[in-house]
Amino acid sequence: MTEHPHAALVRKGYDAFSRGDMDTMRTLLAEDAAQHVPGSHPLSGDFKGQDAIIGLYRRLAEETDGTLRAILLNVLVDGRGHAVSVHRFTAERQGRRIDEIASIVFRVVGDRITDLDECLEDIDRSNEF
């Protein structure tokens, strides 16, 4: 059975993110894509456009001294432009460590990601980290 194109797109994004390949990330994101990061920490909020999203990813890498990992566990699709990833998120920052399950709800139009909504297992733990 062939994987749904939206699941393949999400997997390709996780692979590029894991390798720090922001050039590939740009090819997957619509120019006006938006990423929504929940919480009340300095990296929470809405990031609109490829440059803002790539900037967020670079800042995440900087803040965690390159220790951030998002290990994809599963991708679910609805066949109508939505994909949901489930991943394990680990990182270290200023002597603290985080290890939790998280999710991203993707909106796909054509062959590009237009919207990414993050969901966290423990939003308070994420804020503290």
Rank of each mutant, 00 (worst) to 15 (best):
M1W: 03
M1C: 15
T2D: 14
E3D: 14
E3M: 15
P5C: 08
H6E: 15
H6C: 13
A7W: 10
L9V: 08
V10A: 12
Y14G: 04
Y14F: 15
Y14K: 09
F17C: 00
F17Y: 13
D21S: 02
M22N: 11
T27A: 05
T27I: 07
L29V: 00
E31K: 05
E31H: 07
D32C: 05
A33T: 05
A34E: 15
Q35T: 05
Q35S: 11
V37C: 02
V37W: 06
G39D: 02
S40C: 04
H41D: 10
P42D: 14
L43D: 15
L43F: 14
D46H: 10
G49E: 03
I53G: 09
I54T: 12
G55N: 05
G55Q: 11
L56R: 12
R59H: 11
L60Y: 06
A61I: 12
E62W: 07
E63V: 10
T64P: 07
D65C: 01
G66H: 04
T67W: 12
L68T: 06
A70M: 12
I71K: 11
I71N: 11
N74C: 07
L76W: 10
G79W: 08
R80E: 15
H82E: 12
A83M: 04
V84Q: 00
V84R: 03
V84D: 07
S85T: 04
F89W: 11
F89C: 01
R96P: 01
R96L: 04
I98T: 14
I98M: 14
S103T: 08
S103N: 13
V105P: 05
V108P: 08
D111L: 03
D111K: 05
I113K: 00
I113W: 04
L116C: 06
L116T: 09
C119V: 12
D122I: 01
D122E: 03
D124Y: 04
D124T: 11
D124P: 01
S126T: 13
N127F: 09
N127E: 11
